[in-house]
Design a protein around this nucleic acid. Sequence first.
DNA 1: GAACGGCTCTTTTTT
DNA 2: AGAGCCGTTC
Length: 659
Amino acid sequence: MKKFILKKRDNSNKNNYIINYKKELNSAQYDAVMHNTGPALVLAGAGTGKTRTMVYRVARLIEDGIAPEKILLLTFTRKSSKEMLSRATKLLDGRVNKVSGGTFHSFALQTLKIFHKSIGLNQNFSLIDQSDSEDALSIVRTEFINNHNKYKKKKRFPNKSILSAIRSKSINKRDSIEQIILNEYQAFTDEIIEIEWILDEYSKYKNRSNLLDYDDLLLLLLKALNDSNVSDEISKRYKYILIDEYQDTNRIQHEISLKLAGREANLMAVGDDAQSIYSFRGAEHNNIIFFPKSFDTCTIYKIEENFRSLEPILKFTNKLIEESPISYKKRLFANREGGEKPYIITAKDERQQSEFITQQILESREEGIDLNEIAILYRSNFLSIDLEIELSKSNIPYKKYGGLKFIETAHVKDMIAYLKLVNNFNDLISWNRILGLIKGIGPKTISKITELVDKNSLNFNNYQQLLSEFRNKHRIFETFSMIASLSLNDKPDQLLEKISINYSDILKEKYSDSEKRSKDIEIMIQIASTYNTLDSFLSDMALDPPNSSVEDILPTDNESEFVTLSTIHSAKGLEWKKVFLVWALDGRLPSVRSNSIDDIEEERRLFYVASTRAKDDLFVSYPINIFDRQTGFVLSKPSRFLDNISEDLAARFTLVEEV
DNA sequence: GAACGGCTCTTTTTT
DNA sequence: AGAGCCGTTC
């Protein structure tokens, strides 16, 4: 019989990596990158190279022979996932492109497409976005109110967006509707039964239409993962899981993460509890605290050296967050010395604030600073209006993030609705939208027609007989015959071309600015031409739509230099040399709508996220004497988060106009 | 009875 | 830009 001896494996080839990890990373980053198996939590403060660490870890795993498709990288937006992978590709090579991943929602979609059978999901489901979902809720709600006279006139019955928020929170926080109302919507504690009933009807409505909303994606993914066949298959597929922005995951995402990781639990969560800003979406910054407790052992890595900001900015932001009762105290220290203290600037009104910033940007341009290195950040979308006017006046090109997106404009949504019907004839939400475009057709007629669709008694052969009694029947017929002429086999851009021929009449009737809107549709067709299948186009439009606003959807390439205007939320993860945080006014940041201590603390973190975007210069400004309609108060105090900022941390100025 | 047009109000943040 | 309300029109 042969005798074996165990020979110690030679690990010295670890030094044969293509990438010199030791040299290119600091020791905290290096440790996280080299983390091998088992659960790990990486606490990486703002500007400490969190993305860099993830990029290097992906590369390192691949260099160690892990098949790239077995690495699952879950990120907060698809943009950040693309960015990470392209950076890792530059670092290593094309193998990186095979890494699996996306956002939780897009990953859920991919998985449900494969495993739909095991949870009894019809394959041809389509996705609806927030506003579609609210449309459906509104239909159900109106019907309910019409059937119950006592809600007709009197008091405030929750509107569609509140209903949507309640449902969404209940799913995302894994809590009952009743609990959510008792905890967060006390104004409606007397209507719990009614709300539950409406939300239940809404679910049925979606089921009949074969539609899934954002929350359903997560809920069904979790359901699928609870099937042991699915979860076994999944654990075979993905051996190493990395999750970014863990502080902004919610309870259901946490549960999904644990399921995905399976018994091996090669799960690395990365995040910073100081930057948790999505609690309105059910995000639970405590997830990051609970994370290690979900396992017997969990390695924790802290990365605290800040490479982004000059020291005075870091001192300022450290002070901002110092009073926050977050659990993991980090001490960020600066790698970059020099620079000036942040400016805190009082403007007498909004106009003056806009003019000042515009002037600063013009001066920066004179000094040779690239406009791409400048950002203006604000709490809420509508706070940018005056700035936009002023920037346009001075011919400063800008690109706006957050706010009304291309995909959310009425005409684009209309076009999408036609496409969805090609894919799914039972999509009642799209029928509602499309039929509503026809002149002479209102809610009553629509509900009669959709009822026929719902009963499966209407089709392309019999619509003329069934719908002949209606007023304006010819226009209804036109719509039907147009949709009938569309085929699933046509490419998305061809479909849109056909639709737009019919739609252009509607557009002209409905809008005074129809020319502008029909240009948008041309742009839409261009975007669609990069897709081969309707399904892929529609999925992307629901989960990964072009996220800048209408005007700058297509890079008007000759203008490659632009200032960024963004909500703080949309600025997450990004950085600029010069950052202007505007409207740092008590009542705007924190918003007057934030009341509880938790709300206020989240506003503080928002302030923190905004200021930590700055590399070299930070300007915090606020106008005073602003009348707030909601409260009836005049807002004239700077943000309370600036209260404890002493003169050695920031320099305060008042704008005075030169005479 | 159903749909329309014009008015005012209002705007946290997003997958 | 859009949503909701209300008086007017078909």
